[in-house]
């Protein structure tokens, strides 16, 4: 305890704080970039997976296989796979790029099921009504199904991203200068482990808490029926 109190002023000095701030920024950036790209790609994957017809059978299998395989591999293994694969192809790829790609690959597999669940929650009769008017599959998805699926997709997708902020600590294993990596570094410099990792823990909390709040806000807002949401807006104006 004495050691912590004695080290605290030195630990919370400018350079160290800047280091942690940058590391936190990096953690947040790679999570958000990776999850967003992954989220976008997951839509493509789900759309391909729902392609009707016999000719698309291999396509559907590939999509299902991707999700099932990546959901069963530990994230750390994905990171190493990406690291060694990318380094074999382009040796000068940055570690940040590698981390984002790994996060992305993993996020696709997890959010694809969230998205599929969301799309399937929209009654099939809505799709039939659209089909009967000759809307194409893409038009039906974009104009009818997706707008109604958002309330079901958004909350778990944000929850996934929030929990993933923590899991990205694993990329410190390949040497990305994110929060946990910097923590280990500072710890090696002689700072008390409790002090260092207590601070790191607090940083993770600060990163994910606002996102959780955003998720809760969106969940509540999206749960409101459309008519009410709109009339409330009018009342406010």
């Amino acid at each position: 305890m004495e050691r912590i109190l004695e080290q605290a002023p030195r630990f919370f000095s400018g350079p160290n704080l800047q280091l942690l701030l940058e590391a936190a920024g990096l953690t947040l950036a790679m999570t958000l970039v990776g999850c967003m790209i992954g989220f976008g790609l997951a839509f493509v994957l789900v759309y391909l997976r729902q392609t009707p017809g016999l000719w698309a059978l291999p396509l559907r299998w590939i999509c299902i296989l991707y999700v099932e395989v990546f959901r069963r591999i530990p994230f750390i293994v994905v990171i190493y796979l990406v690291l060694f694969f990318i380094q074999a192809v382009t040796p000068d790829a940055s570690l940040f790029t590698i981390a984002v790609i790994a996060i992305c690959l993993y996020a696709v597999a997890y959010t694809a099921d969230i998205i599929r669940g969301g799309l399937e929650s929209v009654p099939k009769t809505q799709v039939e009504a659209a089909q009967a008017m000759n809307l194409s599959r893409l038009q039906t998805n974009l104009r009818i199904v997706l707008p109604q699926a958002w309330p079901v997709i958004i909350p778990p997708a944000i929850a996934f991203a929030v929990s993933f902020i923590k899991d990205t600590a694993l990329v410190s294993q390949v040497g990305v200068f994110e929060l946990t990596f910097r923590g280990k570094e500072l710890n090696n410099q002689g700072y008390s482990g409790i002090l260092v990792f207590g601070t790191i823990a607090f940083c993770y909390f600060l990163l994910s808490f606002p996102l959780s709040m955003l998720g809760q806000y969106l969940e509540k807002r999206l749960a409101t029926p459309r008519g009410e949401r709109r009339s409330r807006k009018i009342r406010r104006a």
């Binding site: 009769t125 809505q126 008017m133 809307l135 038009q139």
Partner: peptide, 24 residues
């Protein structure tokens, strides 16, 4: 016209009426 109406829940009445005539 279906038994359960099947109006598009994410659209206004007007949008329901004009979607297919405009887009299709």
């Amino acid at each position: 016209v279906f038994q359960q109406y099947n109006l598009f829940q994410n659209m206004t009445v007007m949008q329901n009426l004009t979607l297919a005539p405009l887009k299709i």
